[in-house]
Amino acid sequence: MKKLITFTLLLFAMTASSQEINKTTKDEAGKVTGLINICNRTGFKAIPEMQNRYEVEYPAYQPDQTTIEALQPLIKDKKITIVIGTWCGDSQLQVPHFYKMLDALKIQEKDVTLICVDRSKKAENGLIDGMNITNVPTFIFNANGKELGRITESPRESLEKDMLSIFAKK
């Protein structure tokens, strides 16, 4: 049994690491329409609408410094999963703001998983199965493999204040 679990984990790790990063989707004419599966910020360059919006929204967003300072000690050992649609207006607005906040917090890329979905809010290979994604963007905050909370579509107050509310829960 132990060998079977080890083999399964090894197979999963090999599959996950072999996935193409920043995989694009195309329409019937061959035009790039979006990103799918595991992505990173660099992939936004492939989608003009996403890149253009990122170039405007990222520098314009000013995270609340007091909230950033309050978040700093709470963010240690946390993981974040972001599920977005590069075609989605809310994703195009909120994701650059979120990355500006992550950069202010000095969160490392290894602690953030960015997953892009198609218009039916699906990714390939069951990548988001079981995540209960109803709207995008969805920001999911985890500690020790357990979900602490999420921000779906738009924050209630601001991204950093909503994140502080999630991490401050005891």
Rank of each mutant, 00 (worst) to 15 (best):
P63K: 01
I80E: 03
I68V: 15
G34Y: 01
T8Q: 09
T138M: 06
Q72M: 13
S17Y: 11
I140V: 12
F167A: 12
N37Y: 00
R119L: 12
G43N: 06
D129F: 03
L127E: 06
I21D: 06
D90P: 08
E160T: 06
F12G: 02
A46G: 02
K2A: 12
F141K: 03
Q65R: 14
M163P: 00
A60P: 06
N132R: 10
L74F: 10
L35S: 02
G130Y: 06
T8W: 09
C39Q: 08
S18C: 08
Y54L: 08
K122D: 03
A29D: 10
Y58D: 00
E160N: 12
K122Y: 01
E20Y: 05
V56T: 11
L74S: 08
K170D: 11
A13P: 01
K170A: 14
K3S: 12
T81K: 14
G149M: 09
E28H: 07
V95N: 02
M50E: 03
R119V: 05
G34W: 00
C88W: 05
E109A: 13
I151K: 00
A123Y: 00
T25Q: 09
N142D: 11
D162A: 09
M14C: 10
R41W: 06
T138P: 00
L159W: 05
E124P: 00
I75H: 01
K3A: 13
E69F: 09
M14G: 11
K31P: 01
K161Q: 15
L9A: 11
I38C: 00
F167N: 02
T33H: 06
F98R: 00
E49R: 13
P63G: 05
W87L: 07
D129E: 15
L4D: 14
S120V: 03
S17W: 09
I107Q: 04
R53H: 13
S158N: 08
E160A: 10
E55L: 13
V32D: 07
D162E: 11
S18R: 05
I47R: 01
K169H: 12
E124V: 02
D118C: 06
H97M: 14
L74H: 06
